[in-house]
Design a protein around this nucleic acid. Structure first.
Lengths: 213, 213
DNA sequence: AAGCTCCATTGATATAAATCAAATTTGTAA
DNA sequence: TTACAAATTTGATTTATATCAATGGAGCTT
């Protein structure tokens, strides 16, 4: 366990003594695909570090549609802001695959670790990263129309392979599958991409960029 | 100048020596109402602390509409994230009133102050605050429809007095003045608010809450 | 007080994307 | 291979809000 904790960026510089203490105030907990780590609006005094698996963070709008904020991959701090400010979770976190988290008693963590310079530096990095994700959501979903969003997605993610479900892309971009399909078609007609079966190949990357900037 | 720096939360615990050094790597700079501190997409190696005045932070969408992210009041760090990650400013910052900032050479600040525990703690607080603002923008503009947004605004801001221009409220909520007017009307018909001239009085605060949650 | 200018309101129309409804394609299991 | 299920595409319609256009005050200026 100590070894595993040491592999977490946040704790990589802690002493053996600190790591032992850390191990005593936290534990690993497994989740299955589809299980929810926490719900939007709920409270918790646990700090979560995703160790394995993929977590989708999303809000729900008035029509029960998901607004996907981000997909988390290991190793990530999840929702540290709720801990830092003792506020309810701003989003729901749901496992997309099987995985597990390291779950820490936050009040004790704050007391014993938050003043550690490495820990606070990593926390700053993690918070900044999250700011970037939210900026990204705002840029994509408030500043761009449907076709521009799709062009941006293609520009940033490269060729779309079979395995990526259209439905998932649509959810990420905040579009319905129908609208996504129509946008792909527009971009195809512009000659910026070509499709062979389910896969798209990008023909003109700079052209795509033109569409969203 | 040293005294003024000491009044900044971020630096309140610094030694005289540190404050003198800080004064040597930064300076005060005045701005008039309407002037722009920085533009979305531009770079700077300056860290800005708003000392006086109000700053509007906004992005611009494809139709040249403003997406207001936040209004900053003194004393606030502005756009520290761009400094921390050496990335372009994610939004434009424009003075809404006359004011001034304390402008610090960021590379030197990072070298000499970032590891100070008080400074990093305050930085964490500031970043967390900004995350909350962005969450708020997402909740308001992506998860709620026009009338719900207005109800939420009324619920959170209380009675609307004459001095608050409808046009400004509309911009904050991401609505046109026409739509704002129609939403006010709906809420008035529901008997949740009443208007005497230009002022609104809230008649049923819990009723307002029902509309957006 | 008359006339102006600035907002706010109201009404009519336009627009982008969602929704609803098939039709078609792709994937999968028998 | 066939048949069924799921995903995608296409077309028609609806919906929420923006846009365009006109009207109606409220507060200023002279």
């Amino acid at each position: 366990m100590i070894d595993q904790l040491k592999s977490i960026f946040l704790f990589s510089h802690l002493s053996e003594e600190d790591l032992t203490h850390l191990a005593s105030i936290g534990k690993f907990r497994e989740y299955n695909s589809g299980e929810t780590l926490f719900y939007e609006g709920s409270f918790s005094d646990k700090l979560y570090i995703l160790m394995k698996g993929i977590i989708k963070a999303y809000k729900t709008d008035m029509k029960e549609n998901e607004i996907v904020l981000h997909y988390f991959y290991p190793v990530s701090l999840v929702a540290e802001m709720a801990n830092l400010y003792h506020i309810p979770f701003p989003a729901t976190a749901e496992f997309q695959t099987n995985g597990y988290v390291f779950e820490i008693d936050y009040p004790l963590f704050e007391r014993d670790f938050l003043k550690n310079p490495t820990v606070s530096f990593e926390l700053i990095k993690s918070l900044t990263q999250k700011l970037k994700y939210l900026e990204e959501v705002i840029t994509t979903r408030l500043a761009l129309d449907a076709t521009s969003r799709v062009a941006k997605f293609l520009y940033e993610n490269g060729d779309i392979s079979d395995s990526t479900k259209r439905h998932k892309i649509a959810t990420i971009l905040g579009l319905t599958p129908e609208t996504l399909s129509r946008s792909f078609k527009k971009i195809k007609i512009l000659g910026l991409i070509s499709d062979e079966g389910k896969n798209f190949t990008i023909l003109n990357r700079e052209g795509l960029k033109e569409l969203f900037s």
